[in-house]
Amino acid sequence: MTVSWLDLERYVAGDLEPERRRRVETALSADPALRARLAGIEADDRPIPPLPGLVGDGPLPPDSGAPLPEPHGEGTVIPLRRRPVGVAVSVLLAAAVALAVIPLREPGLSNDGRLLWPASSTTWKGGELSLRLDRERQGRVRADAARFQDGDRFVVRLTCPAGRRSWDARVFQGGRRYAPLPVDGPVDCGNAVRLPGAFAPTGADAVTVCVAVGAAAETGALDGAREELADVDGVVCARLEPGG
């Protein structure tokens, strides 16, 4: 068996399926050069450069516009919308969506009571602008979830006045900010329109998801945001608490 650099990297990461792992170990036991390569990987403790925007030291740099490869065979991209979800779950989701009552939440408050985030529902351009997070956990879907655990996946549903609108989204957690959803064009606004993509929060800190619509999206209202988004016209946020 040929053992590639990729095999060795995945072996070190504990990312190989058992049969392939055994074959790599067999090859390692017979090949000193391969063992030397493995040792080189394991001994490489050079720091990785921080990624701006993920560690709170500035905004995430702009997209380069360079293409990304399409997924084939082994190298896969698994957006939530392509995951197999059973018929029963789909029915449950449809029922949940149909029955969902979107509560007006209070804006997020800091420990000293300072307003941090806009509400998850507001009035905008004469209509309703609101945000709802639907959670999938072990094949079960809950509309308008407020809590998360590791392994949960969330889709974002936006209600906005009819029309094609620019949009943008950010997730804020523990001083970090990231763009969780692929913004690939305007959204056709309506009632609880699902935004493309999904995200899977982890960690012990609460998560705040904000969506900007219209001019707020076009002017990058979320790009410089930390904690002073309250009352920004065209921005709504929803909060997820860890646990439960």
Partner: peptide
């Protein structure tokens, strides 16, 4: 681009 569910081969 929200493509964070990717593996090392990709």
């Amino acid at each position: 681009r929200g493509r964070t569910d990717v593996d090392l081969p990709y």
